[in-house]
Structure formats: structure tokens, C-alpha cells
Nucleic acid binder design. Structure first.
Lengths: 333, 333
DNA sequence: GCGATTCACTGAATCGTTTCACTGAATCGT
DNA sequence: ACGATTCAGTGAAACGATTCAGTGAATCGC
């Protein structure tokens, strides 16, 4: 590609007859006379000089990069989260390194380790497996902000979802409508049956005296469609499906359509996270709103504060869920 | 956070009585005896050593990072593109730095410059303003793969959409159905009226003798909803709306619902990019499929090849569009 | 048994910045 | 006019790896 060599600060120094140190100062407008600054700026412009971010990062001990470790980027809501988070991190001059655990806790741990090697200044993570002891070690050397569940290790900030309430809102809603035999589609892998959200589902169903068939799938619409198809072929068929993401709910819509089931007449469907498309699918999807924009903003601010070295105890932000009742849930036939 | 200092290669060297160089070699399993390697590995483990990615990047001249410059991350299809691209880049041991131009060409140029400062090994970009002369300079020093439109500068690979055909498929479809007065919702900012896709729209409409009202909006569903609301309040109302993304189409759905218009009876709607939700919205959305997974794979492979220094001329991949007719388009009333 | 090759490892240079500790000159207050 | 501050700028030491050139020792072929 580039035939001629990269131009460094030394080249600018040579061109201006200054020392590299002076150039470094001048370019940042400190400790130098205005006319020197102008002279340096001009020379830099002419030579086409544009720093070397890696060298700068090594010297200053900061890369300006924030790691974002998504549990599953296939989920529409996580995609949206990344979009908004990026916008908010940008306000603090941080860029995102986005990596995707794809629902696999092992991969999540591996990626966190990789990123922690000083490539990123901090990490935002919505953990698949918040109880993994590895977090203690990783959080030791790197500012972490966790989103969703509390982490088994030190963090600089936590944006915690009250999943107990969130799950409760949906299950009580379905219970109130008269559903007794429901299915729950969760994005967990079998290897982490202990995820907080799922534990809450089991507890709450038991408390309400509902019979719940909990099925694991992934966030991809395609896989959720398959899982839902299997579920709906079951006899007796559940009267309602609670999906732990709106992406999964979309999969259920597709499976229901394929089977000729009409929502909500033949089947109630509830989602989770309240993605904007919940209003556009038909029938409009009942879901649980967490105020994702505020969540992302809080996460970004917490991380930025820690990266900038602003002191303070790990701050917690608790976000409350709100059930948004739409047209996809009704009393069973 | 971390009370004790970061452990470096020198610490491992001291612990094993070797030189830093030897440790460096041993950890990569070259030029050292097996038992030394084992000894080093063990010491590294005990000390909790885990390289410093920045220092490594400086020494080797590679960061292992690929920049991904999205035109507008609000677009569901771009989000999906990022997800798949990340998966494919991962196969080549590249992580993604994801940045969002948010539809602003100026921001796009600024971000490209920022990333180009050796922070990333290469850049994947779906350009908002492919004709910007700045690309020449940026592409000079950095492997770039462009997705969508050809860039006004050197690249190592191009995945080109045949927008002429893609736009033509939709417009001909609408024309065939009998639509004469249509609206086109594009995500462009007014500052780049010259984007290839839009130019094609104008040409094709003229060729078909259709009257097209081209309106700029953004990829966010909310903004598209507003733009569509204004559009639908117009008298005479267009009989069809062609949206240059499925996200925008979702906005039109919302606006149509708010106005009590039934799709496709009162209004035909066509999308672009064929996101999976096109099947789930109601009525199912007519859209144009580009084979996004293949596009992302091609882009990742092209970039990885260039980053790895494999030679070869800039390869071009042209992808052909396919119209997917669903239930959102019909003959006007 | 002897020169040539391989092997395992070392020391020092390198990557391109930033920053610390100085220095000589100019400016200051008194 | 004199000691004390600022100011603009320098040289060298970080930052933490990789890698080049070199060095003894062991191994090889013959």
C-alpha cells in the first residue's frame, strides 16, 4: 500500500529544527510559544504527519478504547445497546472494541482475558455467567462496568436490572390472564443453568402455581423459530410463551405463523427488553421496558469516570422494569 | 483498582533467570527448549503474566484490530452487518473497533482519520460519501475494504452492491403494480445529495415515468416515523413508499398505523436490505435481499488477506440484489 | 578429532510517543 | 541591580514488548 515510510514525530522535529519533545508539546499546545506551535503545526501538515496511536497509548498508558463484551450480539436489543453505548462513550472520547461471546460462557471468559491485556482502558459487559470466579482476577487489573447482573469480582460500576421484578411482571400478567401452562424460551446455554434470570423464572412460576416448560435457545430469530416450532408441536400446547428477549419473541411469531396459530387467540407471547420493533410486529408485542438508553448512558458514564481516574466507590445504578402491555397477550381460549 | 503493579515480561525473566528475549521466544514456543518453555509458562502463570497488547502492537506493527466504520448504526441491517462481520473477522484473529458516522459525512471522514493513525490494521467501511477526496489520502496508508459503493481512493478490496439493479427491481415492481405517485425515503443527509443510490432512484423514476417525492430522513425508526407522518399527511398522498432501509420501512409502518392506513390496501411499502424482521412485521415486508452474510464474509476475507500481507491486486466482489415480494406491496386502490 | 552446523539463549536496538529533570535566557518584583 | 520565577526548549529515560546479530556450547558428518 504505502510506498513511502510512515512519517514520525522525528521527521517533524528534523523539519522544524526542534527536538521531538518540543514537537510533542507544541502539537498539544503546551509549554511552547505560539509561533513555534504554528510552525510545528504547519510542518506536520506538510509532511502529512498524524501521530501513532499505538505509541501514544504505550507512553500514556491509555488506548482510548473501551471493550464491549456482548453476551450475544444476535440479540436485537444488544445490538441496540451497542449502538447507544457507542454514542455515549463517544462523548467521553472513547471508542468501542466490540466482541461477541455468542452465548458461550467459555468464550466470554476468553474474550475478557484477551481484552484485559491492556488493549482497552475498561470493559463494559452484560455477563452471561456473572458468577464465574474468573471475574475477580480480570476485574483486578481493569475497570469493569457490568450491565444486568452483579459480577463475582471487583467493578467500578454496576447497572443492575431487577430481573426478579421484571420476570415477575410478565408472569403475573400471564397468570392474571388465566394462563396455567406456559413455556419460557431463554437464551442461556445448558452450561449455565444458574443464570439469575432463569432462577427467578422457576421460583416465580412455582410461587404462582404455574407450570413452566423452560427451553434453551439462542437469540437468533432462526434458532428461536426452530425451538418454538418444537415447543408448539407439543401436546398439550402451552397457552403462552414468555421469551427472554424480543428477538426470540420474533422467532415465536414466525413459528406460530408457520403453524397457523393466531396470536393472541391461540397463543399469547411476551417478550423482554422492549425493542422498538415490538410496536411494529403484528400483533404488537407485550414486553418489558428497561429504559435501554438510560442504561447505556449510565454504563458509559460509569466507565468513563473510572477510566479518567476519577475516584469514588463503585457506583450502583438500579433500573426498574415496566411492563408494556400490547396486543400479543390475552386470556387463553 | 489494581494495587500491585502490572507484571511485565521482565518480571517473568527475573523469576526464571532468563533474558526478556528468551521469555518472549519461549511464550511463543520458538527457539527454545521444551523444558524452558514449560518453565517459563509456569512462571508466567504463577505471576499472573499476560502480555501487554499495546507494547506488542508497537513492536510488531500490528494491533489485531479492524476498524468498522458504519454509516449509521441505527440501521438494523448495519447492526446485523456488524454482528456477522465480527464473527468473520474473528476467524482471522481480528477484533472490531466499531464507530458510527451517524449519517454525517464529516463525522465519517473524521473517524476514518482517527482510526487510520495506526490504531487499526485495516478498515471496513460502507461509505456515506464514497466520492470524498479524503479517501485517497486515507487509503494510502491503510488497507481499506469498502462495502456498498466504490471509493474515491485506493482500496484492497471492494464489495460492491449493484444499486442500479436493486433500486430498479423495486421501482419496476411498484410500476408494474400500477403506482404512479410514490415517495422515496432515504437515509442521506442533505449534504450528500450525490450518493449513488439516490441518483439511481431519480434516473429510474424518470425512465419509468413515475413521479417520485424523495425525502431525507435517518435510519432511526422514530425519525423515519416522523418523516413518514409528514409524507402521509400530504395531499395527494403517495400510493407507495420505497424505503432505502428496512428500519425506515418500520417507521413507515408505525406512521401508517397511527394514521389508520392499512398496508397494502391504502399504501404499499417496500424496504431495502431484507432484514430478518421483514418476515415478522405485518404485513410481511417486500424488500431487496443482498445476501448480507456473504457480503460480510467477503469483506472480512478481503481485509484479512490484506492485513496478513498477502499480495494481490484489489479484488472486487459484486453482489446481485434479489427482490423478495411479500405482502406489503399491492396495486393502488 | 576437527571444522561446520545447529541450538538455546543474550544484549542491545527498535517501535514512536510522552514525560521527567534540567538549562539557559528572559522577566519579575523590589 | 540582584535573586527568584517563569518560559521555551532539550536530552534521556520511560512504556513493554519483538527481533536482529552474535555467542558459547553441543552436535554433526566424515
Amino acid at each position: 500500500m504505502s510506498s513511502r515510510k510512515r512519517v514520525t514525530i522525528k521527521d517533524v522535529a528534523a523539519a522544524t529544527g526542534l527536538s521531538p519533545a518540543a514537537v510533542s508539546y507544541a502539537l498539544r499546545g503546551v509549554q511552547t510559544s505560539p509561533d513555534t506551535q504554528e510552525r510545528v503545526r504547519q510542518a506536520a501538515e506538510e509532511l502529512g504527519y498524524s501521530g501513532n496511536a499505538v505509541a501514544r497509548a504505550l507512553a500514556r498508558g491509555r488506548t482510548g478504547l473501551a471493550g464491549v463484551l456482548s453476551g450475544s450480539l444476535q440479540d436485537l436489543s444488544e445490538q441496540r445497546f451497542v449502538e447507544i453505548l457507542g454514542r455515549q462513550l463517544g462523548r467521553h472520547d472513547l471508542h468501542m472494541v466490540v466482541v461477541d461471546a455468542r452465548g458461550e460462557p467459555d468464550r466470554e471468559r476468553m474474550l475478557a482475558r484477551q481484552l484485559a491485556d491492556r488493549l482497552v482502558d475498561g470493559l463494559v459487559i452484560s455477563p452471561l455467567d456473572p458468577s464465574d470466579p474468573a471475574w475477580a482476577e480480570i476485574g483486578e487489573g481493569l475497570p469493569i462496568v457490568t450491565v444486568g447482573d452483579a459480577l463475582a469480582g471487583p467493578t467500578v460500576g454496576e447497572v443492575l436490572f431487577d430481573n426478579r421484578t421484571g420476570v415477575g411482571l410478565v408472569l403475573e400478567h400471564l397468570h392474571r390472564l388465566g394462563h396455567q401452562r406456559i413455556a419460557v424460551l431463554t437464551p442461556s446455554r445448558p452450561s449455565t443453568p444458574d443464570r439469575p434470570a432463569e432462577r427467578v423464572v422457576a421460583e416465580k412460576c412455582a410461587a404462582l402455581g404455574m407450570q413452566a416448560n423452560v427451553v434453551n435457545t439462542r437469540h437468533s430469530m432462526e434458532e428461536a423459530t426452530q425451538a418454538a416450532a418444537a415447543l408448539l408441536a407439543h401436546d398439550p400446547r402451552p397457552t403462552a410463551v414468555f421469551c427472554l428477549s424480543d428477538s426470540i419473541a420474533c422467532g415465536v411469531y414466525a413459528a406460530a405463523a408457520a403453524r397457523g396459530l393466531e396470536i393472541p387467540r391461540d397463543l399469547s407471547v411476551a417478550g423482554y427488553d422492549d425493542h422498538p420493533i415490538a410496536c411494529v410486529v403484528a400483533p404488537a408485542l407485550t414486553s418489558v421496558d428497561w429504559g435501554l438508553p438510560e442504561v447505556a448512558t449510565a454504563a458509559a458514564d460509569l466507565l468513563a469516570a473510572a477510566v479518567a481516574g476519577r475516584p469514588g466507590p463503585p457506583r450502583q445504578v438500579r433500573v426498574a422494569p415496566a411492563l408494556v402491555e400490547r396486543a400479543s397477550t390475552a386470556a387463553p381460549a
